[in-house]
Structures are given as structure tokens and as C-alpha cells.
Design a protein around this nucleic acid. Sequence first.
RNA 1: GCCCCGGUGGUGGAAUUGGUAGACACGCAGGACUUAAAAUCCUGUGAUCAGCAAUGGUCGUAACGGUUCAACUCCGUUCCGGGGCACCA
Length: 1032
Amino acid sequence: MEYNFNDIEKKWQQYWIDRHIYRIDNNASKPPFYVLDMFPYPSGAGLHVGHPLGYIASDIFSRFKRLKGFNVLHPMGFDSFGLPAEQYALETGRHPADTTDKNIETFKRQLNRIGFCYDWEREVRTSDPDYYRWTQWLFLKLYNSYFCNTQQKARPIADLIEKYSKFGAMPKNGKPITGKHFTADEWNSMTKEDQEEILMRRRLVYSSYGEVNWCEGLGTVLANDEVVNGVSERGGFPVEKKKMRQWFLRITAYANRLLESLEHLDFSDSMKEMQRNWIGRSKGAEIEFSVLGAGLDIKVYTTRPETIFGVDFMVLAPEHELVCQIVTAEQKKEIDKYIIYVKSRSDRERISEVKQVTGCFTGAYAINPFNGKQVPVYIAEYVLAGYGTGAIMAVPSGDQRDFLFAKHFKIPVTNIMGDAFIGKEAADEKNVVLHNSGFLNGLTMDEGFDVAISKLEELGIGKAKVNFKMRDAGFSRQRYWGEPFPIIWQNGVPFALNENELPLRLPHIERYEPGPNGEGPLANVHDWINLNNGKRRESSTMPGYAGSSWYFLRYMDPKNNEEFCSRTASDYWGQVDVYIGGTEHAVGHLLYSRMWTKVLYDLGLIGFEEPFKRLVNQGMIQGSSRMVYRLNLQSAELLLKKIISSFTDLHIERDRRLHGWNFDYFFTEKELAIDVTKNTILRQRIKDFNVIRERENLSVKVLFISEIELFEKMRGGNDFCRQWLENLIEAGEEYHSPVSEKGDFFVSKGYIERGDLENVDVLRVDVSLVDGIELDIQRFKGWRAEYQDAEFILENGKYICGAEVEKMSKSKYNTVNPDELCMRYGADTFRMYEMFLGPIEASKPWDTKGIEGVHRFLKKLWRLFWQEDKCVVCTDEPVEQELRVLHKAIKKIDQDTESFSFNTAVSAFMVCINELAELKCNKRKVLEPLLILLAPYAPHIAEELWKCCGNEQSVLLADYPIWDEKYLVESEKDYPVSINGKMRTNIKISLSATTEEVEKIVLQNEVIKKWLEDKQPKKIIFVQGKMINVVV
RNA sequence: GCCCCGGUGGUGGAAUUGGUAGACACGCAGGACUUAAAAUCCUGUGAUCAGCAAUGGUCGUAACGGUUCAACUCCGUUCCGGGGCACCA
């Protein structure tokens, strides 16, 4: 029987569905294990081979754990709200709900074709009202909670209200500050609106003002993604920053806890490092500088307070609120101009720019509180309003950025770094002894840190301060396709809906244009948004991470209509044991879901405070794009130039003008001109010139050459083309290229590499039209109507494409569809090949070529069971050699699978099958355990062959084999022996030999003797079981 | 610009984490089977030098430098590629 993978895979997939074999129970006696893939967004392009990489890994791991006796939860669902569907709706008028549903169906069909063991009965979709009802419910939980600084945890806002009404909010010591502190009486006599405003300062989601990318041209707010080089991607309209009312998630309250509990997580060090950097905890000081003659202070945050004697100027963020108060009349115009410039710049552009220093003097001076020095105050884009206090004290002798700024604006630099600063750039040493620093002189910077802070506190002009780079997360999107906020506005105050009013359904709309004043499309749905008595619903919707911050909990209890997830379910499953996904979520999704989990834990809704116990990062599969090179008129001109410039014996003029006519070349002695012209206008051009020629009675002869004919000649090679042109010039006669019907010319890569042809258009071509790097010319012509008449300049009869590794994406024509591969090689081959490609965490370009090797392996395995339509599996007892092969494989594959080293596990399968084939082993006692090992990787073929062995039940219900060390021990080892670390020979020595015995054996060896040349070895290093090194 | 990751034959990668660099696979070359093709099987395959050959020498893990008996692995500097940088998901 042949290995007919298509029939086999279809059969077993149906078998699994019929028997609900992947249905998972919430109260099995087996220990629970939760394996989760990162939530996919169902894009319209469907799956490409990059997507399933992580899914295959998690599927293998789930099946592996299941065979090892765990009750494995392995669900899948869809993060189905999002920008692309709405964008598509804007373009086509198709409702996001419809396109999303269709996309999900495609995804599911593709996933099922690969044979994943998802329990589809637990599927969730964020855009489903039964799901977003709970997202809204959780929003209300956040809204109705505050972060208690004493207990360092979330508590119901009602507790805070009670506290305010009994005790007010008064400082522990010191004087109350107006606007910040109040007594209980004051609280109780406040209006509802005023109370709300105070509560808003503490809620875990709150409403405030934040900057957005505003695009006047489109009348809408844009995602960073939609802004390219400061203009909108659609339409190219200018984009500027604008303040708008927004909802925010108070993630900063959890900064410390998010940072500290990282310690206990099984995430990669680099992942933790990224999160630490994002949270960006720093220790420093806040210092107040008074502004000369303005009666106000500028508060700066610095991590280097000890460098305060080196302050030569101050910089405020251009959007800092004090700017308009301190700017002098003379500088006002300049400052306003600069602020407009900064508004057009993104944060990233502002901090990335290092080559060009920009900034503007405010005219104001600040006073250094320690030495009374007056320093100028600037604004500059490199200071962002959101970081620290939005103002810095600049110390050019210690900070390169400040130094460049000082140099640019010719501000004199005070050196506090002694010899470490030589005036060319800021001192890059981090802990030098301070000079010119008053009471800090002679201290190192680290020592000075604490001294400076105590002095600041003593004088009451500053204090130690821990600062976080992390900012509160914007929670509003001016979009339609997202969760509506369960919020109603009245007189500028937001009121939350009651829990029993959920879900607040997203109204159906048919037009997707933005609302007025930058609001989202919902603002146009008048009968939905406007309620009676001037009440109005919130018009923005929640961001993508709202639904994805808690979805892993819903899988535990997906059908629950009473709760977002029952405590029984979350207690049973607990944390996600293994979470698999890409590093692109390192700081977004992963931090948000960590925060939500902590809030839920604080409120007693779940029993654990971290969502993901272990995180495995899968690398990205990149696409390998293929390029073709299209010639144009400029390529022709450059080609001609190259040829002409090699004619040294003729007098040539370039760009010769003749009665208003411009020739490319003119040969004075011959009165011969060359005119390179586009084929399409050749006839007209000749006609036009003939008019001039007659009118002016010119004797000049012209070679009118079309770019097409030039390329045509190029087909014969460089020399041929040159010779042809030389002949024409030699002849000196009038010549007109024939008008051609040919299409665009494409030139093979070799010509570009050698520089024979330049200035070509580089176009991407669909990878499916290319075999390796050779273009299938016939199929290329049929790909697009515009290429139907394409012409090719080949090398060795082939058209060779360029290649470039980049992101796999439909727009780059480099996607490879898994369906096609499953059809040609089977899902089992596809699964194993994706794993075989390399380590799961590494990024690598996709190349279909190697898939044959994995396919051959499965066929070879098949032949151990089936030969010429007969099942050849026998019940003979295996010999020791066969058992060694088996147990070696069990050990290696078990360990590699456990440690996510799937590529080496696949190799181990290959080695094992190669060895068994060599031994002609068809014994059931060897092959059966092997099939269990294989089942997680290639479940379909494993089921089929398992049945051939005479088993009635699915292989999924078998027990994972356990290796026996007794088959693996060896008595001697073929030691590598090196001289001075260079391997010279191998010697077989018993593993139980002592050091003395080994040394004796080594020194008697002929090869070693030869290298020693009668000298005594200095030292012999012997590492038992590893190697021997003789030092001469 | 800042943060994180990576760089090993023609290609994807392996190397028990400091101990035989190149497992396994692709590709390529040669051979067997076949009327032929497909499929399958066998042999060789980092570079270079010497030799008819068996074999042996030298070089070789992005580049340079360092630590060590021993470095793909540890440290430093540089170059190149990828991911993230707060409204793509």
C-alpha cells in the first residue's frame, strides 16, 4: 500500500471530529495543563506558512503532554475586532462583522487542515457580544476600582468614597495643598461633578486629555501605522498632534509590581529585559529652578542630581505648560514657529534625530539654586512632555546630547568632569570625580548622588524621586469596530452603566466615515449615541488589547452566562503553563494582560496574579521575495552613454542643441547625431525633427534609436550591441529604428550585478512564479495583463531573479500558502518540516525546497510497515542493537520535545528510522513505541500505522514510552586526543580507566609520539568521558 | 537614535552549554535499478595544499583583539541583518 497522505489525513481528521476526541473536561482526575497560542487577528489574507509555526509547536507540546497523562487545555479563538476590517469596510462598504466572519472561517479551515487538536467548543471571538459583554464588565471593574497606595493593590472605589466622606484626603504631615487635599466636610459638600473629578484621578481607567495623530485632510485620528513620514498613508495629508479627551488605563500604578514579579516568571531574559526597559524605573531627583523675574519655578527630573553644578542651560518640552508664561516678547514669534514644527513630528522622530540639533531660546533665564548661576531656558524636541516632568537640566560636559545642543547654540560649557572631559564630546565615563562642584568637589558621581539629594531636601528645593518611563496606556480609539464603552456622558461627567445593562451592543452601521470633531463613526449614529436629557454615549471604542488582555480566562469557562469565568474553572486550570507567541508582543499585550490579571487578583476574582507561567517566543518566518528588473528609457540612455564613452577616437558632443532640438550625442566630424527615444513616440519624434530639418535646411543625419531596439541588441550581449552601434556610426547614414510592438523588457539579474544595465525598475514578482531563482517566463506573462507582451534578456537561456529576505506579506508577493503544501505533501510532512526548519525561537526565511527531505523520511517510515501491499510488521523479539536505537530515540525525543527543541527531535526521528531501515527492523515491539513518539509531530500517519499494528484505539490514548538507561550505557569511549588543543587522533579507552592509565595509553600512541618528538609533555588534561589534551 | 535578538559549508541548521566544528536535511556530482521517466537505493561533498592512492598538513563559526591547556560558546570593540519603541495586531 502506498503512503496516500491525503486520504489518510482526511480519514483521521474526520475520526477525531466524530469522536470529539479533543473535547476537554473541566473536572478530569488527570492533572491540568494549559497550553496557549497568542490570540490571532483573522486577517483577510488567510494563513501563510509563517503563522502556523507557533501553532504547530504548541500542538506538538499539547499532544505530548496529553500522552504523558495530563488533561490539556489547548484552545483557539480570534481577536476579531481591529483596524484592518474597518479600513476594508471604508474601501469596499462591506461590514466588518461579515468580512471578519468570513476570514475566521478561512482561518479555521486552514488550521484544521494542518490537524491541530484544538477544542473548538471553547472558541471565543472578541467581537461576539457574549464575549465583549464581559470585556465591558471588566472595564467597569477597572473603572470602579482604585489603586490603594498603602496596600499596593486595587480596591473598590466605594472604599475610597467612604474614606473621603469620613476622613477626607489630608496629608500625613505638612500643610494641605489647595486643589489636592480636602477635609471630609469639604468632600461632603462638594457637587457630584467635583467629586467625580476627584475620583477620576484615582480610577484604574480614567478619562483625561491625550495627544493623538490628527489628520485634518481625512478628518480623523490615525494610528501610528497609518502615518508615514509625517503624512497620512492614505492620501498623503499632513498629520499633526492634537489633544483630545481620551480614556486611559492606569497601568503606571502597577509599574512596581509588574517589575518585581517579573523575577518569578519563566520568560526569556531578553523578554524580561525588554519589559524592564519599558517600565523604565529610574532613581533620581526632582529639583526646582526658579525663573529669573517670573516668580515661578521649573521642576526638572534628573537621574544625575550630583551634576547640578555643571548645568549650563535648561530645556523644556515644547508642549510644557510654562512655555507660554516664561517666553519673552522678543522670542515669542520664534517659539511659536518652533512649536508648530514640533507638532508635525512624531515622538520617535523627535528622540531619534541626532544629526540635526533643533531647539529655540525662550528668552528666559533660570537660576541654579546652588550657585546662583543664571542659565538660558530653551525648548527642544528631544525633551518629551510625558517623560519625567517634561523639563531637564542640561549638563553638556556629562551628556552627549546636551553637549551637541550647547555646541549648536554656542552655549559655554562648564566642565565638572575634570580630565574626563576634553571639550570635544561629553565625558563618557560614568563615575568620575566631580570638579567645579562646590560642596560636591572630590566626590565621585555615585557618592555625590546621595549627598546632593540630602542637600536638596534640606534646602527644600528638591527631593529624591523614583520615576517610571512607562506612561498610562491610551484606551480610546476613534473607531467603529471595537467594544463600545459602557459609559454615558452628562454635563461633561461620565457615568458608568450598571452591570445588568450589559452588553452594550455595537450598533449596526452602513457608513464608516469618521464623526465630527475627530470623533469615531459612532458619533454619526444619532439614535444610538444621543439619549434623552442631554445624555450622550461615549463615541469612541476600546483598543485591541481590551479583549485580548483577559481572553485566556474565558477559554476556561467559555459558555458561562453568569460570570466572565467561574472561580471553580480558574482555580482548576490556574495560570497558562506554556504561552507561545512572537516577541512583537513583548511590551504591549504581555504587559496589559499582566496588569489586568493583577487587578482581578486584587479584587479576589481569580486566585493567581500572573497570567503566564512560561513564555516561549517563536521566531518569525520571513518571506523570500523575488525581484525582476524592468528596463526603462533611463536604462537605455545610460547604456548608450556607456557604449559611446568607449569611442575615444571620435569627437563627441553631449546634449547638443540644434535649433531648439536636443540630441543625446553629436559627432562633429561626421555631422551625425544620436537620439534615443521611447518606442511609443518614435514616429512622432522623427516627423517633428524632419519639419525642423527641412525648414532650416540641415544636413545633419540622425540615428533615431528606440530603447526597444537597443535592448533587443543587448540580447546578443554587450559586444554585439556595441558592434551594432559602432557599425551604424561608421556608416554615418540616417537610421530609424523600426517601430516595435514589443512590451517592456526585463533583464536577468546578472546584467544588473555586472553593471551592464542601470537605473532599472526593481519589481517584486510572486514567488510561486519562480523556481528557486529562475523565473517561469510563460507563467509570468500570464500573471498580469501588463506583462503579457514582456520581453526578456536572459543569461544562459534563463531569467534569474533577485532575492531579498523580508517580512512575509501578501503585498510583497512572497507568501507561501500552507494549504498548497498540505495538498502536495500532506499535513504531517508540513508540520514536521516547519519544525525541522530550525529552532522555534529563531527567525528564518521560508524555503519550500527542503520539504522533500522530510517527506522522504515519512515515506521511509511507511516502508518499515508496508512493503508491496503487505503489512510486514512482525512480533519477533527485538535484539539489543534494535532496542538501543529505540531507547536512544525515546530519550532524545522526550527531552527535546520537553525543551521545545523540535528541530533536533525531528533529526532524531530521521536518525532512528535510518538506523532501523539499515537493520531491516519490522518488529512491532520497536515500531509501536516509536509511533507514540511520533504522534505529537505527525498525528495522522501515526494513527494509520498504529492501526496497522493491530490497535483498536486511537494512538492519542496510548502512554508515552519511557527509556531504559540500561540500553544506553557504553563501556568504552573513543576519546578525542588533542595536542595543544588541536585534535590529532582518537583512542578507544575504557570509561572506567584512571587518569594514570589514560596518560600511559596516550603516551604510547604512535600519532601522539610523533607530535611529541621525544619531548616530555608539560601537562596532560583528562576530562573523563569527554576528551584528552596533551600540552607540549 | 534607544532597547532586545541574531550572524557557522552552495542552503536550512547541529554541536551534550568551554572539550572531536559541520549531526540531520536540501542542493550538487557520480553510480545502481528501469526501454524510459518517476520513485527508490548506494557513494562523495567546508576551503586549500601535497600525494597515483591510502593519507597527511594548513586555514576555517561576520571582522579584529583578549582570557584559557582548550573558544562557535566567555570578555571588549566594530560591521551587517531582524524585531520593538506606546493607536497594526
